[in-house]
Design a protein around this nucleic acid. Structure first.
Lengths: 159, 159
DNA sequence: TTGTTAGTTAGCAATACTTGCAAACTAGGG
DNA sequence: CCCTAGTTTGCAAGTATTGCTAACTAACAA
């Protein structure tokens, strides 16, 4: 994603206005590696600007996505995640804590389906699922019984 | 996914019952390459068994998924898709018609993140986005103006 | 065949996430 | 300082999915 200043210029040049709400969201996303959901961003935003509405957060995120300044990630659990990193990259998702990490994968862009030669590829995405270092370490300390109990009903945030 | 007969045995051996609803769903999924949503499966199921409830379809799909007989795919548009193909494979998604095709990718399983060496990989997924043969062909016949109009508001099935 | 009962189904309520809408508000230009 | 097009809010509505429970039934034994 571009810097808040650049986004400001870009917004204005499109006939859009630079509101305090948008400025706040730009700054919260800048260099943000947390792949936030709309809701979580709203949480942080509210702390700095009480009264800002969730609707506005969604709106601005969608605008940025339309402008190609954000990528949408759907991991099938909880809501859509927004990724301000628009360079080519892929994701590693921890199945325990749910954290998403941006990763780079050598050779990813040259992957091709063996079958489906007639498919015109415009984009290749690679997703690793597994355990992040923290959860791996923590997991090894857990009793097998506890591990079993915890994996019974993942009962994640929702969806 | 295993054959309806095998699933029947498997269900019974787990203390589960073999109801007509389940049998129907097993048969609808068998050799099904359409990556249906719960809703679409419900549509077909209803035709053959009026009165079957959407709730039951969800329930059975979830049971099969828990048993590892189905994979869940989330493409970020519309609801969760269910994939009865549980062999190692990947997906090509047409951004025009939304169809998902199972594909095989040479070398996919040996992909590694360059960074995040400390991530313990349990699964690698590759997703190609682009145009399927049909849409590509159809697209080339479309006027640029129409193409632009059509891509304005993809307004997919929902979400 | 019939009885028993644990597992299932149907259907509706409830939840989570996201968008539509309209009234009130305001950034940006004159 | 004024205008107006674009914004923000708050709430209602929509979609996808699950919780709950009364009625139902497959499976098994007598």
């Amino acid at each position: 994603m571009h810097s808040p200043a650049e986004l400001a210029t870009q917004f204005r040049s499109m006939g859009r206005k630079l509101t305090p709400q948008r400025q706040l969201i730009f700054s919260l996303l800048h260099n943000n590696q947390s792949h936030p959901t709309a809701e979580s961003l709203y949480g942080v935003a509210s702390a700095q600007m009480p009264g800002i509405s969730l609707r506005t957060v969604y709106q601005t995120l969608n605008e940025l996505a339309e402008m190609g300044e954000l990528l949408l990630i759907d991991i099938g659990e909880g809501g859509t995640r927004f990724d301000p990193n628009i360079d080519e990259h892929h994701h590693a998702i921890c199945s325990d804590c749910g954290k998403i990490r941006d990763v780079h994968v050598k050779g990813a862009s040259s992957l091709k389906p063996n079958d489906a030669r007639d498919f015109l590829i415009s984009e290749v995405g690679v997703v690793f699922k597994g355990l992040c270092a923290e959860c791996e370490a923590r997991g090894s300390k857990r009793s097998p019984a506890l591990q079993a109990k915890m994996s019974q009903k993942p009962k994640s945030s929702s969806k």
